[in-house]
């Protein structure tokens, strides 16, 4: 199974993710968010942003984490696909996300994301594999 796969949702974009660890899953989710926004293949880790998120559930934690990354993009125009989760339990995480400022001459823009929705959101672990589904509002 590919680590993440975008799927169709009428007017929007969804992504299915899988990873051997919860922290790997969250790192991938961060990358997928920025891949939906732009081609991140040439994005270098020039600047770093620290994130600290707390939530009441693993799903809320993923929603809040991705929403925080989206705010950074809108506010600072930073593509931060190099995500590292440093500490994480089911209710909180500490992470860094690295990348560079979006430059339309260098990075192929794809689509603007309005939000990370709660629609069909799930995070689970089965047979040693962590999976998640997230739908982005376009």
């Amino acid at each position: 199974m590919a680590p993440f796969t975008f799927f169709d949702h009428t007017g929007d974009i969804g992504v299915d993710l899988s990873a051997p660890t919860a922290s790997g899953l969250f790192s991938l989710a961060g990358l997928a968010l920025f891949e939906a926004i732009a081609d991140t293949s040439g994005v270098r880790p020039m600047v770093v942003r620290k994130l600290q998120i707390a939530a009441d559930s693993q799903e809320e934690l993923l929603n809040r984490f991705l929403s925080a990354l989206l705010v950074i993009f809108d506010d600072e125009r930073l593509l931060l696909p190099h995500v590292a989760i440093h500490e994480m339990d089911g209710r909180s995480l500490r992470a860094t996300a690295a990348g560079e400022r979006f430059d339309p001459e260098l990075h192929e823009g794809r689509t603007e994301l309005k939000a990370v929705t709660w629609h069909a959101l799930h995070v689970s672990r089965q047979n040693g594999l962590w999976t998640a589904r997230v739908v982005f509002d376009v």
Binding site: G11, V71, D74, D75, T111, E112, K114, V138
Partner: peptide, 18 residues
């Protein structure tokens, strides 16, 4: 404040999608 941070640089922009 976050809403203002996201929006203040976007007055007069079209966005994408439809």
């Amino acid at each position: 404040d976050t809403a203002f941070r996201r929006g203040l640089g976007q007055v007069g922009t079209l966005g994408s999608g439809n």
